[in-house]
């Protein structure tokens, strides 16, 4: 039986987000909170794998108490259970502190065969928590999955969506996989699951429950802080090089040095 964890994040509804010009943070007041849309594809991937191979889907999120609503909504799609990681000490966490907290929750759940995330959250857009989570847990990370095939024997075949096509790889579980929206069409919630979700008991795990040091989490455990928020510059031209890996590596190194001198 596969143990599947799906990490979700509650985010403000995209088209209504504004930035505070002073603090460079998101103005969340009066904006409806939704499940990060990419996470719904991650949830669908988890549910489909469960339906095909048997298993259990556990939802995980870190956030303020109201993030419980996102878990309850996600249970309405058919996930089996959920955990909310919430504590004042977690507030202000950057991606590392978030990943560290999630990793501890994964351990407390007894580990997992597969951890799904969306490719990124639409509020911060960092795409960092997934890879950091895998790093902390010491398991492989596969980004941008657009297709999953169960190869049996604890091996998953993954097609990763890239800018110029895709690559295919095999990964031995356990692993963290982030998904892109091309992977599936999320189902509609089910009435019966929504009714159950309404009554579901969602345990909240605090700093104490996770047995973490307060200095490791939240603002205290964060290496980064937001200085300024601005739209990224448009991407430049891209080139495709083909050839022998050694030769390509040398060429790339030379180019990077050249760019670094500018």
């Amino acid at each position: 039986m596969l143990k599947i964890i799906v990490c979700i994040k509650q985010v403000p509804e995209t088209d209504k987000v504004r930035l505070d010009p002073e603090t460079h943070t998101l103005i969340r007041e009066g904006v409806q909170a939704i499940i990060n849309p990419f996470d719904l594809y991650a949830l669908e991937a988890g549910l489909r794998l469960k339906e095909a191979q048997g298993g259990q889907v556990t939802l995980l999120t870190m956030g303020p108490p109201q993030a419980e609503a996102a878990l309850r909504e996600a249970l309405g799609y058919g996930a089996d259970e959920a955990r909310l990681l919430s504590d004042r000490a977690f507030a202000g966490a950057d991606t590392w502190a978030t990943a560290l907290t999630l990793a501890q929750a994964v351990r407390k759940l007894g580990g997992a065969d597969l951890i799904f995330t969306g490719k990124q959250a639409i509020d911060g857009d960092t795409a960092q928590v997934g890879p950091m989570l895998a790093t902390i847990l010491g398991i492989p990370y596969v980004a941008w999955a657009r297709k999953l095939t169960w190869a049996g024997d604890g091996v998953l075949e993954v097609e990763r969506l890239l800018d110029h096509g895709y690559d295919a790889l095999r990964v031995r579980l356990p692993a963290v996989v982030s998904v892109v929206k091309e992977i599936n069409e999320p189902r509609v919630p089910s009435f019966k699951a929504k009714m159950q979700a309404k009554k579901a008991v969602i345990p909240t795990w605090t700093l104490a429950d996770l047995e973490l040091d307060p200095h490791e989490v939240g603002l205290a455990g964060s290496f980064t802080q937001v200085v300024r928020v601005f739209p990224p510059p448009a991407r430049g031209e891209s080139e495709i090089w083909r050839g022998d890996p050694q030769e390509l590596a040398a060429r790339l190194w030379a180019r990077l040095k050249e760019l670094g001198r500018r």
Binding site: R187, V188, P189, S190, F191, K192, A193
Partner: peptide, 8 residues
């Protein structure tokens, strides 16, 4: 199919 999935 969606309506069925939703139990409706």
């Amino acid at each position: 199919k969606d309506l069925a999935q939703a139990d409706l």
